[in-house]
Design a protein around this nucleic acid. Sequence first.
DNA 1: TTCATATTTCAATTATCCTTGAAATGTATA
DNA 2: TATACATTTCAAGGATAATTGAAATATGAA
Lengths: 104, 104
Amino acid sequence: MNENEASELFGSLSNPDRLKVIRALVEAGPEGMSAGDIAVKIGASPSRASFHLAGLADSGLILRERQSRSLIYRVNFERIGGLVTFLMEDCCRGSTSLRKCCGI
Amino acid sequence: MNENEASELFGSLSNPDRLKVIRALVEAGPEGMSAGDIAVKIGASPSRASFHLAGLADSGLILRERQSRSLIYRVNFERIGGLVTFLMEDCCRGSTSLRKCCGI
DNA sequence: TTCATATTTCAATTATCCTTGAAATGTATA
DNA sequence: TATACATTTCAAGGATAATTGAAATATGAA
């Protein structure tokens, strides 16, 4: 992961609707959640939800799979973890001060 | 930290120049670094560097202090740590899958 | 095939962000 | 005071991102 890739991922997280999507999908677990249910859960119109889901899926932060008429979305922990690792280890050079500040 | 605040911080990190600034300031350590030196280090014009420094300082990710003619910037690990904690614990509910994915 | 459901895509509009270079501000020194 | 240095601020223009509602696509069922 380089600075350009990381900055795009941070951009994907720079919106309250998209953070709500991530949270909803973490709660939903491995079963995932349909686009329609996500839209209701985050309080957005179908097209607005779809717009944000597309952004998250394009950046790889969430995964999409069709199940009959529905599109099921799931969180991609590997991608989120990769971004956290970039920030902690690469960008911030594994700073122990930073580690203390997030209790890990 | 709530979704709106976190999304603003992620927005602050959603630019390669600003990630370079963070990295430079982590390297610089507690002594910090002047705006001019940062501009040279990240390869940006003074006004462009200043624009990005202002964004980072406004969001609290970096701290600023005047020293004679120079403005010295330092990284604010507490703020970055707060964001990582939000993402790991609040947004992603302390998911063990996510922890494994960033090796922490 | 025809209809309903689920979701995306598109076009138009508005809003936000980024870059550039010139001008303004604050600080120190002669 | 006058001058140089360090940095920011401003205005203008261009680039991206977000919102809305209508239309298009994909799937499944009658």
